[in-house]
């Protein structure tokens, strides 16, 4: 091999090596970005579980900027009150390869639309999401949502849809004075999130709404409610006339003026 040929081989190797190193660096960079995004998404979910919604959204937005084609961080970063932002999720969902991701995105978009009094906009027939959103829409329109009876073989509901539906239906049942429905929805919310800030109130509704719980125990549950305690206890006294005497003995103002 002549020195010219050796130089040619060397230069070719150097060029190929540089290309490979650049490719490796690119793969490594995208891998690290993905890893950071996964880590941030996981932290955002943990924050959501602790009701730090604003912090979770901020962190999820950071993760979404790292992996713009991924549905999970984009959904976590989403402000559902902003319908334009909700519509943008559709484009990300369309790019998503996972069917579960697409279904989650569609459920989130449908929930945001129904919460704003609009049509769901997706065919969610055969899924629990569709059934729950229809009940929510009926409740919001002042119609009877009927009972939330599960249907065999339907796709399970998404967590946010389930929570939103139970919350809306609980509010409606409370306004209508339907104690058994209030207990059922409060029980579902309590089992879903037993450590949520509103859990003590759900516990109170489930307990005080049961004729089997003694008044003294119901009062203990009232004492455990910390969020807007006075208003909550007054609302419970209004819903449950049979508990009024016990509540009046401890919080006389809470029952003042109730019929």
């Amino acid at each position: 091999m002549t020195s010219g040929q050796r130089s040619l081989v060397g230069m070719s190797m150097l060029a190929a090596g540089l290309l490979l190193v650049l490719a490796a660096a690119g793969i490594a960079w995208s891998g690290v970005q993905r890893w950071l995004a996964v880590s941030e998404t996981r932290d955002a979910l943990e924050m959501l579980r602790r009701d730090r919604v604003a912090d979770a959204r901020k962190l999820a937005a950071k993760a979404s900027a790292r992996v713009p084609d991924e549905v999970a961080p984009a959904l976590l970063a989403l402000d559902t009150a902003d319908l334009d932002a909700v519509e943008r999720i559709e484009a990300i969902a369309a790019r998503g390869t996972s069917r579960a991701d697409r279904e989650t995105a569609h459920a989130a978009m449908a929930l945001a639309r129904v919460a704003k009094g609009k049509a769901a906009g997706f065919d969610l027939e055969g899924s629990a999401d569709g059934r729950l959103l229809a009940a929510m829409a009926a409740a919001n329109a002042g119609r009877d949502p009927g009972r939330l009876k599960p249907v065999d073989g339907e796709a399970p509901p998404h967590l946010n849809v389930l929570r939103a539906a139970h919350t809306v239906l609980l509010r409606r049942a409370w306004q209508a004075g339907k104690v058994s429905e209030v207990r059922a929805h409060a029980g579902a919310l309590l089992l879903l999130r037993p450590r949520a800030p509103e859990a003590p109130l759900m516990h109170l509704l489930v307990g005080a709404g049961s004729a089997l719980l003694p008044d003294a125990e119901a009062i203990k549950l009232c004492e455990a409610v910390k969020q807007e305690q006075e208003a909550a206890i007054r609302a419970v006294a209004a819903l449950l006339p049979q508990r009024r005497a016990a509540i009046a003995a401890r919080w006389p103002k809470a029952v003042e003026g109730l019929p």
């Binding site: 599960p150 998404h158 579902a188 489930v206 049961s210 089997l212």
Partner: peptide, 17 residues
């Protein structure tokens, strides 16, 4: 858990959970 309370729920387990 839930002492004295006879009936809690039902709650449907959400997708993926």
């Amino acid at each position: 858990l839930y002492q004295g309370i006879h009936d809690v729920g039902p709650m449907t387990v959400p997708a993926g959970h």
